[in-house]
Amino acid sequence: MKFWQGVLINALLFLALSGFFRATFYVESIWIALAASLVLAVLNMSIKPVLSILSLPITFLTLGFFSIVINAFMLKLTAAIVGSGFHFATFGTAMWVAILLSLANLFISNRVSTE
């Protein structure tokens, strides 16, 4: 059940962040947000571990900040798979969304796990 909770939470966060970054981040509908959230979850389970291992030296040198770039790349890859209904105008926007998504997920997961 936690998987589906995470997918739903990420979809809601995508919608909220698309309202925050109106000019540079576009989500067409709740259904596109759900599809993007599901695609991101699958990519995070399959491709992200490989990328994290391959980028371990640079992540170590940057004290972990390169993981933000990996998360932004995963979001851009999600946008490429989902299509025109889910779009980032710049890689910088994808990085900001990755940061805010990670912080929100950290906060929400701490709240949900303590209950």
Rank of each mutant, 00 (worst) to 15 (best):
L8R: 00
S102A: 15
G64H: 06
S109Y: 09
I30V: 07
G92W: 15
M1P: 03
S113R: 15
T62L: 13
A94Q: 01
K2R: 10
F86D: 01
V50K: 03
V42Q: 01
S52G: 02
K48I: 00
G64T: 02
Q5M: 13
L100P: 04
Q5W: 13
F91Y: 15
I81G: 10
L51E: 07
M95I: 12
G92R: 10
I53D: 01
S113W: 09
Y26H: 10
S55Y: 14
I58M: 11
A35G: 01
V50H: 11
I32V: 15
A35D: 05
L56W: 14
A36L: 12
F60L: 11
A16C: 11
A36N: 10
L100G: 06
K48L: 04
N110M: 10
I81T: 13
N71R: 04
T114Q: 08
I9C: 06
F91L: 14
L75W: 02
L40T: 09
L56F: 15
Y26S: 05
G85D: 14
N71A: 13
N110Q: 14
A72M: 06
S113Y: 08
L43A: 00
V7C: 13
I108K: 12
A33K: 04
L103E: 06
S29A: 08
T78P: 03
V27S: 09
L34Q: 05
K76G: 02
E28W: 14
I70Y: 13
Q5A: 10
S109T: 13
G92A: 10
S55Q: 07
A35P: 00
I68Y: 04
S113K: 15
I99C: 05
M95Y: 07
G83D: 08
L103R: 04
E28Q: 15
V97N: 03
E115K: 13
E115V: 03
V7K: 07
Q5N: 06
G19L: 12
T78F: 12
V39H: 12
S46A: 14
L43I: 08
L77W: 06
L103D: 03
S18A: 15
A23R: 12
F91H: 06
L34R: 08
I32P: 03
L8T: 02
A41E: 11
P49L: 06
V50C: 00
F3R: 14
S52M: 07
G85T: 05
T78D: 11
F14P: 06
I9L: 13
A72C: 03
M95R: 06
V97E: 00
F20R: 03
L103N: 05
N105P: 07
A23M: 11
A98C: 09
A89F: 02
S102P: 04
M45D: 07
V7W: 05
I108H: 12
G85W: 13
V82N: 13
F20G: 03
A11F: 00
I70N: 08
I108T: 12
L75H: 01
T90M: 04
